[in-house]
Design a protein around this nucleic acid. Structure first.
Lengths: 227, 227
DNA sequence: TTTAAAATATGATATATGTCATGTTTTTTC
DNA sequence: GAAAAAACATGACATATATCATATTTTAAA
């Protein structure tokens, strides 16, 4: 149980919770629980019945879905400031995705009853949630088109650029989100060996450099030019 | 301009508009406009700025997105009872998809100001919209996984089953939504020739039969078994 | 009806990607 | 720091799908 208060938490600025009143935040603060998740740990399983939502205080996780052939597909990377589990809460369904920590994380868990109550009473909060969901849907549409129409090479180049844009880099210029080659394969929807091959190719072409699994983008324009 | 009244329209049962009060529906009825759209006509273009939403009174349309390589990707088929354009209205953005009539359609156009006003004031309406959006998002997640992990053959079999389930059949057993081979290719994200080849193969295997472009599913279980 | 245009069909071939095998490097564990 | 495990890398080959060419059939237009 954390001592920190939601109404003072900077994180809330970045998600729908910002639409809540001071009173509502204080009520949430009183019933929330904090938890630490280690890299690789599962936050919730696909098909699990969630009793609330998670607000990510620190760290990054991946949302994956198991396909019929047994491979995990990464649908989205979610980072500090964003919330998890809202879709299943709103639809009152079991989760359709699994959430797994990419690095060590700090989460706050807010019980369903509290969120549903706020959604019922605070229309600004509902509208904010709706806007976020609309954004997610638009993003999903883009992913569908990319999956359907672009080559693995193009998708991987875009994935690198996306991660660079959305999560930034370490002081040494390497991508701050550290993903395995298997993760990259799972983002672009290809075999791990294919992802490895394409990354090796990018390296040969001077578009990226690698030290171990750390990747540094060396030529942003070059990656953008891959069509 | 149509004489029919929203508050008496059966269509509203099937979408978020059912959450509106009688008063709200009467106000909408007073400012809505009806229009007829011919098969093949574009309802709105990708990147267009919409001034309201469309409620589909009759007919089916496709939502497509143009990919970098110049091919259209069908993201979703939308039918009688559903609404169009809500995503861009809520995000206050230009549309990210084009809507094209698959057959002759009847639409009601409801101005933005009216919808935004109702969203502001009627929380049930907002919640309903949110639930619909959450459902759409879940569906999109499934499509992403299918695109990434399944073969053209599997995706096409699923597309046929989906259309059968969601839109039903004519008295003679053929699928009631009449799509060109190019449309099928655009749904599963493949070349038109590939879609044609797979459909021919299904025909040889006795899974479907065709008369012209009319397709009849002959063996539902067989199609489901394609893995 | 005749003609033109569009859609469907199919073959031949090229290409991208998947799969399996195997070796090397990196990371983890004791 | 050594041993074990995991991740990465790359070759060889199989397979799915795209592309191009060219019929054939269906639909639309004159």
């Amino acid at each position: 149980m954390s001592m920190s208060k939601c109404e003072q938490c900077i994180i809330k600025q970045f998600n729908s919770l910002k639409a809540l009143t001071r009173d509502e935040l204080m009520r949430i603060s009183a019933c929330k629980t904090s938890k630490t998740i280690k890299k690789g740990d599962v936050i919730f399983e696909e098909g699990e019945s969630l009793n609330g939502i998670f607000c990510i205080k620190d760290g990054v996780c991946k949302l994956t879905k198991l396909s019929a052939n047994g491979k995990d597909q990464i649908i989205k990377l979610v980072e500090k400031g964003q919330i998890l589990g809202q879709r299943s809460l709103i639809s009152d369904e079991r989760t359709n995705l699994r959430a797994t920590a990419i690095n060590d994380m700090e989460l706050c868990f807010i019980p369903k009853s509290e969120i549903m109550n706020d959604l019922q009473k605070n229309n600004n909060f509902t509208m904010d949630m709706l806007k976020d969901m609309a954004d997610d849907l638009k993003e999903a549409d883009d992913i569908i088109v990319n999956m359907a129409q672009k080559s693995v090479r193009q998708r991987l180049a875009e994935a690198l650029l996306d991660i660079n844009d959305n999560f930034g880099t370490n002081p040494d210029g390497t991508l701050s989100v550290l993903l395995s080659r298997e993760d990259f394969a799972s983002i672009v929807g290809t075999a791990t060996e294919s992802a490895i091959r394409v990354l090796s190719q990018f390296k040969k072409e001077g578009l990226i450099s690698t030290k171990g699994k750390h990747i540094k983008i060396e030529d942003i324009e070059g990656l953008k030019r891959i069509e």
